[in-house]
Amino acid sequence: MQLNAVGKGKIVKDTVAGATTGRSISIQGVTKVYGHGSAQEFEALKPVSMEIKPGEFVSIVGPSGCGKSTLMLMVAGLLPRSSGLIEIGDRAVTTAFTDVGIAFQDHLLLDFRTALDNVLLQADIRHIDKDLLRTRAVDLFRQLHLEKATDKYPRQMSGGMRQRVSLIRTIVHEPPVLMLDEPFGALDALTRLQVRSDLESLWLRNKPTVLFITHSVEEAVGLSDRIFVMSPSPGEIIEEITVDLPRPRPISLTGSPDFGKYADHIYALFEKMGVLHGIAPVAHGSGAQSAPARSAQ
């Protein structure tokens, strides 16, 4: 297990083994200030720097309002940054980056289209051959055991099914970069476990670069190659953690002592920052996780 502290503005380079279709992401001294120069000026994000290798699965975890979603939107080119430089591959991000798959907490499926037709929207938007995309989509529906859902409308599907359809729509065009903002936030605990496992399986197909935004320490540890921990607002990176766990990872990791060490370490960081109080340790190797007493600041 590697736990690597990152000083303010320090860039950590790492290596990802294996074939990948992903692209590198370079974030250099990026900040966000709203209402700059006005009486209502608000610093949302202190200078953030990180290097993400092609094919890495990187999570950013932090308390609500720390700026992690703001950072993702700036990386996607959907929100202007106040300072700094962002590059994806060899291209500086100055406008919306289109060669990407983005998913949010809300599945955003169209009620009047079937599950398959929602996925095939990518063909119309991106001018991709519809037969090719249909073949990919059907294969993905099969992989996620959703064959019987292709002709269902969103109202006819469970929350977990809708979110998995959303993930298929996000990756069906095989983008080199995925940006995921709390995609499991609206799901119940058991469904979150299954969809988390499904996401890892989908990612392993082509190894796109993933920037994953989450409040969940367990999801970050369960999915990531590296985790960046952010402070409360105005957010900044306080630590980078390399997760050395084998893949594919089991649907439940709570029986793993190493998993518990990673989770305990991150919770201890939040306790030190005053984000959480009264944290009980994870039960190592017991096959179940203890229920820590937590209260957000």
Results as ranks from 00 to 15, higher is better:
Leu144Met: 12
Thr191Trp: 03
Ile125Glu: 11
His173Glu: 10
Leu167Trp: 14
Phe228Met: 12
Asn206Phe: 05
Thr170Val: 10
Leu167Val: 12
Asp151Trp: 05
Gly255Glu: 05
Arg192Gln: 03
Thr254Phe: 09
Leu178Thr: 01
Arg155Pro: 01
Ser252Pro: 00
Arg164Asn: 06
His215Gln: 14
Pro234Trp: 10
Arg142Lys: 15
Asn206Lys: 14
Ala137Gln: 06
Val138Lys: 04
Leu211Met: 15
Gln143Ile: 05
Val165Met: 09
Val217Gln: 03
Leu223His: 01
Gln194Trp: 12
Ser216Met: 10
Ile251Gly: 00
Pro232Gly: 09
Leu146Glu: 08
Arg162Glu: 05
Ser224Gln: 06
Ala137Lys: 02
Glu239Lys: 10
Ala186Thr: 12
Ser201Ala: 15
Ile128Gly: 05
Gly235Ala: 12
Asp131Arg: 14
Gly235Gln: 15
Arg142His: 15
His127Thr: 03
Arg164Met: 08
Asp139Ile: 00
Glu240Ala: 14
Glu240Met: 13
Trp203Gly: 00
Arg196Gln: 15
Arg126Glu: 04
Ala137Trp: 02
Leu199Ile: 01
Leu223Gly: 00
Ser256Pro: 07
Lys152Arg: 15
Thr209Asn: 09
Arg162Ile: 04
Pro246Leu: 00
Thr254Met: 09
Ala137Arg: 02
Pro248Ala: 10
Met157Val: 10
Ile241Gln: 01
Pro175Arg: 08
Phe228Thr: 01
Ser197Pro: 01
Pro176Cys: 08
Leu190Glu: 13
Leu187Met: 14
Ser201Asp: 14
Val195Pro: 00
Ile213Tyr: 04
Val138Cys: 04
Ile227Tyr: 01
Ile168Trp: 01
Pro183Ile: 08
Leu187Asp: 04
Leu253Asn: 07
Lys207Thr: 10
Arg169Gln: 13
Val195His: 00
Met157His: 05
Gly222Val: 06
Phe228Ile: 13
Thr214Pro: 04
Val243Ser: 03
Phe228Glu: 09
Ala149Gly: 03
Arg192His: 02
Leu245Pro: 13
Gly159Thr: 08
Ala186Cys: 12
Asp151Cys: 07
Leu245Tyr: 10
Asp188Ile: 14
Pro154Thr: 11
Lys207Cys: 10
Leu193Tyr: 13
Pro208Arg: 04
Leu211Thr: 03
Asn206Pro: 01
Gln163Cys: 13
Leu132Gly: 04
Glu219Arg: 09
Pro234Gln: 13
Thr135Arg: 07
Asp181Gly: 05
Met161Trp: 02
Gln156Gly: 05
